[in-house]
Simulated scan of single mutants.
Amino acid sequence: MTVAGITDTRPYLTFALSEEIFAVEVYKVREILEWTTITRVPQTPDFMRGVINLRGSVVPVIDLRLKFGMAETARSVNTCIIVVEVLTGDDTLVMGMLADSVQEVFELAPESMAPAPRIGTNLDTSFMKGMGKHGDSFIIILDIDRLFGADELAGIASMETDAF
């Protein structure tokens, strides 16, 4: 069984959070940065680590580990910020996502993907495009545009401005 709406082979960037491997479509990735100073912003959700200055623009940075109920991302030699573009209605929001490490870019054919699992009625899997099979492992393929609710995106979007 394949994932609805995906009919062609697409490139994905894989990254690690704890022991799990996640992926996003390459076209959503703007760049990958080494860990840099993140300025904390008061009264934001726990998963909102703060903002960075990216060539004169303020870019919000979220901690996907916290968003997914894991322990906070710790700084290491491999920790990075994946800068992505998220569609929010008619606008595009640029934001950074902390990852333990970036793995690889590879192409995934539709027949190597399965729909997101249904695990009970209380678990929201709408942020998952599906599960990809790569070698002997499963990869959680994120739908980055559906990862956050409208209220969360509104708060994040209000942080994205020109710094200088």
Rank of each mutant, 00 (worst) to 15 (best):
E20K: 11
P115Y: 09
Q43T: 14
A71T: 13
S112Q: 13
G135C: 06
P60Y: 00
R146E: 13
N78F: 12
V102K: 09
V61P: 03
R49G: 07
L153W: 10
L108C: 01
V84L: 12
G56A: 06
V51A: 00
S126D: 13
Y27D: 05
H134G: 10
M159S: 10
G50H: 04
A163I: 07
A4E: 15
L123Y: 10
A116K: 00
I119E: 03
M128K: 00
E107I: 00
R65I: 00
I119G: 03
L147V: 08
Y27W: 00
F15C: 12
R75H: 13
T7S: 12
A163V: 01
F68Y: 07
E111G: 05
T92R: 13
P60V: 02
G69C: 00
Y27I: 07
P115G: 11
F127A: 05
K28M: 08
E19I: 05
M159C: 09
I81K: 07
E160L: 06
F68I: 02
N78G: 07
I32W: 04
V26D: 07
A114Q: 13
A99E: 01
T14C: 11
V29M: 10
V83F: 04
L17H: 03
I144H: 01
A4Y: 11
A154T: 14
F22M: 08
R146N: 14
R10Q: 15
M159K: 06
A74R: 15
T37D: 12
T121Y: 06
Y12T: 04
H134C: 07
F127R: 05
L17A: 03
I139L: 11
A154E: 13
L66G: 06
I140Q: 02
I140E: 08
F68V: 05
D151C: 09
L142Q: 07
D63V: 05
S126N: 13
A109W: 04
G155W: 09
E104L: 05
A150F: 06
F15W: 11
K28R: 14
L66K: 12
S112N: 11
L54E: 05
A109H: 01
V77K: 14
I52N: 09
D100W: 03
E25T: 01
S76Y: 07
E34P: 07
R118Q: 14
I81Y: 09
V41Q: 06
V59F: 02
